[in-house]
Design a protein around this nucleic acid. Structure first.
Length: 293
DNA sequence: ATGGCTATATGTTATAGA
């Protein structure tokens, strides 16, 4: 039987960490070695500032991609997060939509808006690069709901997904590690809903929406949570109505898609379900991954 | 059940969400 640890073990200093300057990858899940990246549709930053701050203090993510800040850039309480050591980038809009990124590492090369339609005024896409052991391109997205379907809102959803596919293909060709995370407003499979029969006519579950989602995945992305957890019954959204939370009548629509270079670094994925039971909760909860990055 | 809550701004009503 081979000794545990293998080559390189003797090079590690105290705490099992490699000495500074050693560049080999650690396939370890030790706390502090992984970068934790979360997506969270907070449903209004003004109403959720306290709940978000307390979740940050508990979960201590390195990066958070926020959706539905429902605020203009100037109205975003960035100081509250800067005080906690986060760099902040926002792409806001008055009243609804709006995305933001919080990061313990500096945010570089921030871009706002999904390419492909200069007439699209809706704030649903933001990108930035963070550099830890490797450079990581982060994309935060709030994909259109699309209801009622059929109709112009559903057409907008499908057109937006086609634009996202183009952007995703461009990012893949860069060969960077890429994380595209957010509220996709797509239930990928029946096992991602407690009552799939209730969603058959809904834009979140119509075959066209699911096919468009698969077309993006099929470029070569890995859906992180499903890659780590094959079993059904895990949700990220529970409606405020009809006692959906109390009945666990949820759907899984918040996802993190990883390019091959990012998927190779994936060590953990999870859903912070308990957040839904807190004070003044969003109707979504955080979904997160850990990367050895 | 024809959206039964919730958040925001357009603000004692409308719009959007999923």
């Amino acid at each position: 039987m081979a000794a545990r640890g293998g080559p390189g073990r003797r090079d590690r200093g105290r705490h099992g960490l490699p000495p500074r300057g050693i560049a080999y990858s650690l396939r370890s899940s030790k706390p502090g070695l992984a970068m934790r990246i979360a997506t969270f549709n907070i449903n209004g930053i003004k109403a959720r500032t306290e709940a978000l701050a307390s979740w940050l203090d508990t979960a201590t993510p390195d990066v958070v991609l926020l959706q539905e800040i429902k605020s203009v850039d100037d109205g975003f309480p960035g100081e509250m997060f800067e005080d906690r050591g986060y760099a902040v980038a926002t792409h806001g809009q008055k009243g609804f939509n709006g995305v933001a990124i919080l990061s313990k590492l500096p945010l570089e090369d921030v871009t706002r808006g999904l390419p492909g339609d200069d007439t699209d005024e809706q704030a649903r896409w933001i990108e930035a690069t963070v550099v830890g052991r490797t450079a990581l391109r982060l994309c935060g997205l709030y994909l259109p709901n699309g209801n009622p379907a059929p109709g112009p809102k559903f057409d907008y959803k499908l057109a937006w997904m086609a634009r996202m596919r183009d952007r995703a293909a461009t990012l893949l060709s860069s060969e960077m590690a890429v994380v595209m995370a957010g509220d996709y407003n797509v239930i990928p499979q029946a096992e991602d809903a407690a009552r799939p029969e209730a969603w058959t006519e809904d834009a979140l579950f119509l075959p066209e929406s699911r096919a468009a989602f698969r077309r993006i995945l099929n470029l070569g992305f890995t859906e992180a949570f499903r890659a780590r957890e094959p079993r059904p019954g895990h949700y990220s959204f529970w409606d405020y109505q009809r006692a959906a939370w109390e009945k666990n009548d949820g759907i899984r629509i918040d996802h993190l898609l990883l390019s091959p270079q990012a998927a190779d670094l994936l060590s953990e994925a999870g859903i912070d379900k308990a957040v839904r039971g807190g004070d003044k909760p969003s109707d979504h909860v955080p979904v997160w991954i850990e990367l050895d990055a």
